[in-house]
Amino acid sequence: MNQSTAPKMSARDYKSDLKPIWCPGCGNFGFLNAFYKAFEALQLQLENTAVCSGIGCSSRLPGYMKTYAFNGVHGRVLPFATGVKMSRPETTVFAIGGDGDGFSIGAGHIGHAARKNINITYIVLDNNIYGLTKGQASPTTPLGVKTKTTFDGNMGMQFNPVRMLIAYKASFVARTFSGDPKHVQQIIIDAVNHNGFSFVEVLSPCVTFRGKDQFKLIRDKVRYLDGKHNAGK
């Protein structure tokens, strides 16, 4: 559809009829609302937008969209999203997933999507745990944390997604926090407007398996990059 004849979209126009079934208090709710609002700000058209995912709690998200939506195979969202972009270059393509999906089974795909600079936006909702399968340690579970698979505390070092994506020469790397939906919204807009592969880590607490204090713990730890930080051009 020609942009000038496209209908004016509001955030609710992007919502599907499915109600999210995440646990009450899940960080993904804040992200999803910000996601809808970013779509409205960008005036994305349903027929020119695809939201793809792998498997996991956050990977349920395409089901809550009225755009084209694909819930794929565990860890394989990036090859799938790449295929969508290659076959329909005019489409705005999102790849969505969690830390387990993206940094464990799917980790091998990230470097290639980054080096090829595929013009898609990869968003990882990082909750530091495998939530859908009920609380096993993931690549971003902090050292020493007890989970269902780390009874005496996690012995693995915590994975640092931002550091990895910079090392992979991704052309856009950002971090945001689902407890601040306005910030999430702006980062999504910036990522989509970037002409190339954009990566966004969203700190999105799992209140069920990481604890209800996660929002406060993260909020106490974050700092906003000010105007002095030169991220690049």
């Binding site: 994506l165 052309s171 926090f177 910030h183 980062i187 700092r223 990059l225 690049g232």
Partner: peptide, 30 residues
């Protein structure tokens, strides 16, 4: 390595304070 890439690594390496925002961006070759 570009100057802003080094700065971005410094920010990413800081695990006591989690930086929020666009941490690294470079001109796209597309």
């Amino acid at each position: 390595m570009l100057g802003n890439e080094l700065e971005a690594f410094d920010i990413a390496n800081d695990e006591k304070e989690l930086a929020l925002g666009v941490i690294y961006k470079k001109p796209s070759h597309l």
